[in-house]
């Protein structure tokens, strides 16, 4: 060490006084929010104490799952759900792409158009699939069509938003080069933007399909077709063994979709 050198202690602190104050306020707000929320939920202690017993009773009544009901009543409904999810995803993606292009600031250089497109995407995302389903059931009557449209319309928000983000993350160099060559806007999109977002596009389509498979199952509860309707019937009739079989089938489908999507994503990325 340097002998004889006087070391002056320098003061260093990670946060300034203002930053410490701001952090304290954030914690305070979080705690206040949690406390307020708990008071709103109105927990009834009797029901909580009772819960394990009720659960055990329900599980006992569910066992053994009614495997015999699968071919006759579950299989077709389950396939319906998957079809609703698939067609809904395709429709949703088709509707989402134009809004994705319009919302991306680098592709569409008019801020007011960006905002209009973003408003559409936010609206689609903020309205839950179930709400869309209730609406379309009212318009088209109960069945797979209402479910498919509900899936499609809600998907627009998710797909469009992520697609526009992928577009905004593209490298501007190649775009500039194509513009410098005198390429028209349509060719700049097809040669410059599209190749850059293809992996992101397929990845988010698969991801959305995976989500839609799960959503399409619930849709039956409001009469929008698929296995949810079978589940609703079984619940209403207290056929607990059949309910168990339906839940197991759903679990199997969800796992299968997850595995398939993961495998395909690995290939394309």
């Amino acid at each position: 060490m340097r002998a004889g050198a006087t070391v002056v202690d320098c003061e260093w602190q990670r946060y300034s006084a203002g930053e410490r104050m701001a952090r304290f306020m954030v914690y305070l707000v979080i705690v206040a929010a949690v406390v307020l929320s708990i008071r709103t939920v109105e927990v009834i202690p009797e029901f909580i104490i009772d819960a394990p017993e009720q659960l055990a009773d329900l599980l006992k009544r569910m066992w053994p799952p009614d495997a015999a009901s699968y071919p006759a009543e579950i299989h077709d409904a389950l396939l319906d759900s998957i079809h609703i999810a698939t067609v809904g995803t395709v429709l949703g993606v088709a509707m989402a792409l134009p809004f994705g292009f319009l919302a991306a600031r680098n592709v569409t250089p008019w801020p007011w158009l960006n905002w209009v497109a973003r408003l559409v995407l936010i609206s689609a995302r903020s309205i839950n699939t179930l709400v869309f389903a209730l609406f379309f059931v009212a318009v088209f009557g109960p069945g797979a069509l209402a479910g498919t449209l509900a899936i499609a319309f809600h998907s627009i928000g998710f797909v469009g938003r992520l697609f526009s983000e992928a577009l905004e993350a593209t490298s501007p160099g190649p775009i500039e080069a194509l513009r410098a060559a005198g390429a028209p806007a349509a060719s700049v999109i097809s040669f410059g933007y599209w190749p850059q977002v293809v992996p992101a596009f397929w990845s988010l389509v698969l991801f959305r399909w995976d989500i839609n498979v799960r959503e399409s199952i619930v849709l039956g509860l409001v009469g929008a077709g698929g296995v949810g309707m079978a589940l609703d019937n079984a619940l209403n009739l207290f056929q607990w063994t059949r309910v168990a079989m339906i839940l197991l089938s759903i679990l199997a489908v969800v796992i299968a979709a997850e595995v398939a999507v993961t495998a395909i994503r690995k290939r394309i990325i």
Binding site: G173, S187, F191, Q196
Partner: peptide, 23 residues
């Protein structure tokens, strides 16, 4: 260089004609 990375060399060269070829 500003090439489109995910396109082939040939496509990148042909992109020089985008001003002449209909989209």
């Amino acid at each position: 260089y500003n090439l489109v990375e995910r396109l082939s060399v040939m496509e990148n060269v042909l992109s020089g004609r985008l001003g002449y070829v209909p989209p």
